[in-house]
Simulated scan of single mutants.
Amino acid sequence: MKFALASVVFALILGFAVRSVPAQEKIRVAIPLFPTAAFPVLVANDRGFFQKEGLTVEPIRINSAPTTYQALISGDVHVAAGAPTGLLPSHLQGADIVVLGSWDNLVPYVWVTREKLSDIRELRGKKVGVNRAGSKPWLIIQVLLQDAGLDPVKDLTLLQMGGGSQERVSALMRGGIDATLADALLEPIMKKRGFFVLRGKPTPFMNAPIGVKRSYLASQRSTVKKFVKAFADATRFIVENREGTMRPLIQMLNTDDTEVADFAYQYLHANAEATLYPPDDAVKNLIRMSAYVDRKLGAISANRVVDLSILDELGTKRNQRVPK
């Protein structure tokens, strides 16, 4: 009798425990191969912010923005994080992708050169390595050069090459090119390899959009809201908690060099926008840069591609700043 009573009590306790654990909704998120622009996704998984919201998030690394948005349109992934350059071209294909926020809103590159330069205009006559036409580095180079008064066609030679920053740096080491853009987080590594680094003026650019299909937002709004909340919590954690951020950061960088890791954290800490509200100029510059791929993209309005209503519902204040 006592055994039977104990069994009933145990079953009731177990049943209560099972019911008290929220069901985990699964979301697949496309992130870049080198996922600096999607770093809060890694932090949210590492620190349990997604799990707290009842989400199981699977990050899927994809090497190019066009492939990222193909996966989003087909439903292979539910969210695209940190892929700005494929956003507007997807609209020309009839896709209705909207941005829910962006935590990184500056051009994320530095110039790396074989010779010491004091001004971008000194690139005149040089060979500059760049990704394929339409890629993020290609678009940004067009704007940075023109803002400096240089014609990307007449004043220098742009050499297209596949891969990311590492491939362009390899070409720089071989002497095949004189300069290139590299991820800003790699600045200490570039200097240790004997290259020179030239920082341009901070240029607004929506570098880390959170993109979803409008139809997915409409049908799964509560799930999307949980994702955005956890993403924002992770971004705030990055700003406020250096020690807790270092483990996923070191894993992402794949380095045990403390100087590189410290520099990377300081960069992310300084540039993180924890409210996730992208500045108007950052959105406008993304549209402006996309027009270099197709002039029609320059006519797309910001209201068509940006929907910040989730942030409004979460009570985030547009001008609120996390102390740094």
Rank of each mutant, 00 (worst) to 15 (best):
A179D: 06
T180P: 13
L181G: 00
A182E: 15
A182T: 10
D183R: 10
D183G: 07
A184P: 01
E187I: 03
E187N: 08
P188C: 06
I189C: 00
I189E: 06
I189Q: 06
M190C: 02
R193N: 02
R193T: 04
G194D: 00
G194C: 00
F195V: 14
F195Y: 12
G200Y: 05
K201T: 05
T203A: 00
M206V: 00
P209E: 02
P209Y: 02
G211D: 07
V212Q: 03
R214G: 00
Y216P: 00
A218Y: 00
Q220Y: 14
Q220A: 15
Q220R: 15
R221T: 05
T223E: 11
T223F: 07
T223V: 15
V224I: 15
V224Q: 12
K225S: 13
K225N: 06
K226Y: 04
V228Q: 14
V228E: 06
V228Y: 10
K229T: 09
A232W: 13
A232Q: 15
D233Y: 07
A234Q: 00
A234G: 01
A234V: 01
T235G: 15
R236T: 13
R236K: 12
R236N: 14
I238T: 03
V239H: 04
E240M: 07
E240F: 03
E240I: 03
N241S: 09
G244I: 01
T245C: 13
M246E: 11
M246S: 09
P248G: 03
P248H: 13
Q251R: 14
Q251M: 07
M252A: 13
L253K: 10
N254I: 06
D256L: 09
D257V: 04
D257Q: 02
T258D: 12
T258M: 11
E259T: 14
V260C: 03
V260K: 10
A261C: 06
D262T: 12
F263D: 07
A264H: 11
A264K: 12
A264G: 06
Y265D: 04
Y265W: 10
Q266K: 08
Q266N: 11
A270K: 10
A270I: 02
N271I: 13
N271E: 13
E273H: 08
A274E: 09
A274Y: 11
